[in-house]
Design a protein around this nucleic acid. Sequence first.
DNA 1: GCCCTAATGATAAGTGACTATCGTTTATCA
DNA 2: TGATAAACGATAGTCACTTATCATTAGGGC
Lengths: 125, 125
Amino acid sequence: MRKSRQREAVRSALLAAGRPLTPQEVHAEAERAVEGLGIATVYRHLNALEEGGEVVRLDGFGKGGRYEAAHTGHHHHFHCRDCDRVYDVERCPGQGRIESLAPKGFVVEAHEVTLYGTCAECGSS
Amino acid sequence: MRKSRQREAVRSALLAAGRPLTPQEVHAEAERAVEGLGIATVYRHLNALEEGGEVVRLDGFGKGGRYEAAHTGHHHHFHCRDCDRVYDVERCPGQGRIESLAPKGFVVEAHEVTLYGTCAECGSS
DNA sequence: GCCCTAATGATAAGTGACTATCGTTTATCA
DNA sequence: TGATAAACGATAGTCACTTATCATTAGGGC
């Protein structure tokens, strides 16, 4: 796997954002570093980085996927209904508290909490 | 809006299931009551029932939407990774507890908690 | 600098969910 | 019962996202 400005640009875009981005958002951001960056290249690197464990793909926020730099910490998300951006929420109501909600006989392996509303930026305008 | 066996079959499928169904699941179930039921008819009625407030559409469980009979109660969901079915979870960790997770300046209007794992049926096999 | 080939960008093609169209069926009401 | 138009089933079309193709560019060992 050769070094490439494009891959670095994709990786940096995700790290700098600190929140999950759509491929389009990644493209827009990474294009600032690599003029003429193709959308296919963005998809290629997102897939490669996900494969390599550097990036995590999220579903459930609208049509396409969102990608964020692999976090070690457990966290959740806030989905702004105005701008459609997704933000990280660092805290959690508590693993045990949430997993105990499951009906009997159901084994919980993970959970996701999503908040919906208006982000600070949209709310202040 | 005329009465039709097809609409009743779609409505009944959702009520009987007591959990969110994909249009395909609705179709499979409703077809037991109406032989030869078309998938387009299922989509038509799901949209109409949603419009009429009898049914709620959910996103975020894979590619397409899921539909469930309109509940009055606040509840969450369990998504089985084996069979891909979604079940209702009647309890909630607590509205206030969850909404307080949001960063400052963010206004929370709603939240969704999703549990992932193995359902009782898949786990027992 | 040269060569090899991985990586790239443009874009055609694929995918899956959903919708529009259209000729036929059927519920409703005079 | 017969007329009317809503509802139907089949299927072609649409839309967004994602992937495959291919000619060109460029990283890196020599």
